[in-house]
Structure formats: C-alpha cells, structure tokens
C-alpha cells in the first residue's frame, strides 16, 4: 500500500476509491511528488516530480474506471532552459495552456514554460529580507508555499522560515508584486560548507507557512506562527483565511489535541477536509463544519 503515492476518496463518505502513482522511476511513477494541483480546463490532476524532471498528468476518470492509459508525461530539460548553469526546477503548476514553473536558483525564481520547452517571462526578484543575497534567495526557496488563483490573475508565495507572504499580479504572462506582508521575522543559520548557501532552522525559528491554497475569493494558509519542536503533540497550527489584498480575514481554530497536516476548504459546502494527527497518534481523514 505504501508504494502508491496518490489516493482518491469519496468526499461525502470518506470511502477510499482508488490509488495511483506508484513509487518508482518508470512512466507514470513518482519518487517524491510535489504538491498536487488540478488543471480544470483539461480535467487533469498535475504532479511535478522534481527528481525526474517530469510533469505527470493523471486523468481521474480513467483512474477510477481502471483504464490503462490514465496518465501522460511531459519531460523537462533544465539544461535546455537555462544553459549549462546549474539549475533545479522544484515545481510546475498548470497555467492557462502552459505551466508555471519555479526554481531554486537566483537565475529564475518562477516563470512560464513555453511550448518550445523553454522558460519564458522569468521573474528573478526577491524582497530584500536579509543583507546576504544568497541567504536571501535561500529563504525564499526553503519549503516556500505557493498557489495560483483559479482565475489565474494572481499568485501567492509564502515563506516557511518566518512568515512573509507576497501576492503577485499576473497580467499578459507578466508578474508584478502587488502586496508584501511581513508577519514573522526569519530566524535561521546558514548551513556550513554548502555552495550555494543553504539554510537550517534553529530552535527559535518561527515556522510560518506550511501550506497555502487559493480560491477566487480567498487564500487559505496553514501556519504555525511560533517556534515548533517537530515532536509537539499539541496543535499549534492555525488555519488563516486571507483576502487577495493580504488582509487576514479569519482564523479557524482546531479542537485541542488535533493537529492538521493537510487541509482542503470546500467553500460551497461550508466545510474543511483535513488529514489530522489526533493526540499525537496516527493520521485520520476528518471533516469540520465552518457554517
């Protein structure tokens, strides 16, 4: 069972319907998948596999019907995109008829993958949070969370170390920073001997954004907001709701002893689906009403 990376559940009953995306290096297989996203125009689930440089698109209807040809792949070649300079594409999400990609170097923070397989309209700017340039871009590369507004006019980026949230306008495939919100100061140490520089967290590091999700009205963010020992049993994560101007509109507080790991908000049905750790034990799929 652990060889399968992705699972489909009935959201009303919680019944497990199918598993797909085997662990491996072969066609349709994954090693360490990026967060999943959904291409609504083509009704395909999209996952980027950074270690294998490929976008895998799964047809959920075919997965559920047991059809054999339920996936297709797009192979990326970072060398073709960026030349000989080392680069690493860390994620890809559907954007219009193409894909938005993000990278972990200062050559490209994010950009759009053209039909010719090359990156275009590359965005390279970073907010100057700390003086050292390499440490600054490492801050924006360390488990940074991002989401694209479903109408594809805006995008949110939020840091894991500390808590800085940026909202970008996307217009004619051009990016412009619209809002920057400075919530928690990034506290870290540079990793010793690593080139280019990389960071490690410290005991006093405030862990910021663990997940972000976007709807046309709101940004939903799972935030710790304090120093966070990894073995903490007590729930310290908060689910915040921001508008697209970066204003914190609401906070949902989970019951004591419940630690949310992943959440999905169903605005139409007025509920939150969450995989939670209960009393420090195993993970369960739960549903919380927000009406």
């Amino acid at each position: 069972m652990q060889d399968t990376c992705l699972w489909i559940f009935n959201k009303r009953t919680g019944e497990r319907l199918a598993g797909f995306g085997l662990k491996g290096r072969g066609p349709g297989e994954l090693l360490f998948p990026s967060p999943i996203s959904y291409d609504r125009d083509n009704r395909l689930l999209v996952v980027f596999e950074a270690n294998l440089n490929k976008i895998i698109r799964y047809d959920l209807g075919k997965v559920l019907s047991g059809a054999g040809d339920f996936y297709s792949e797009i192979r990326l070649n970072p060398r073709e995109m960026f030349g000989e300079k080392p680069n690493f594409i860390s994620d890809a999400r559907p954007y219009k008829e193409a894909y938005m990609i993000r990278s972990k170097t200062d050559q490209m923070r994010f950009g759009i993958l053209g039909h010719d397989g090359k990156a275009k309209t590359m965005y390279t700017r970073f907010l100057p949070l700390v003086e050292d340039k390499e440490e600054n871009w490492a801050l924006f590369s360390y488990s940074t969370q991002w989401a694209i507004k479903p109408d594809q006019t805006k995008m949110v980026y939020a840091t894991y170390i500390g808590g800085v949230m940026e909202i970008f306008n996307i217009n004619e495939e051009r990016f412009a920073l619209d809002t920057a919100c400075y919530f928690y100061e990034p506290i870290y140490s540079p990793s010793e001997g690593v080139v280019p520089k990389w960071l490690v967290t410290r005991d006093e590091t405030i862990v910021g954004f663990e997940r972000v999700d976007a709807t046309d009205d709101y940004i939903y963010a799972l935030v710790v907001g304090e120093a966070y020992p990894p073995d903490a049993v007590e729930s310290r994560k908060k689910l915040f709701v921001f508008d697209w101007n970066g204003n914190a509109y609401k906070q949902y507080v989970f019951p004591p002893g419940i630690r949310p790991e992943s959440v999905a908000v169903d605005e139409e049905q007025g509920c939150i689906y969450a995989i939670v750790v209960k009393d420090g034990l195993t993970e369960f799929l739960c549903k919380f009403s927000i009406k």
């Binding site: 069972m1 959201k11 959904y38 992943s262 689906y273 799929l285």
Partner: peptide
Amino acid sequence: HLFSNPTAMIIVDSLLVV
C-alpha cells in the same frame, strides 16, 4: 487508510485527492 506524508489534498467535484 494509512496516510504516508500527504503533501496536499485537493477537492475535485465529489472527490478528495490526497
């Protein structure tokens, strides 16, 4: 179901994909 380090959960119509 034994979840193994879920990276995200999304809603697609009547389905939850984890």
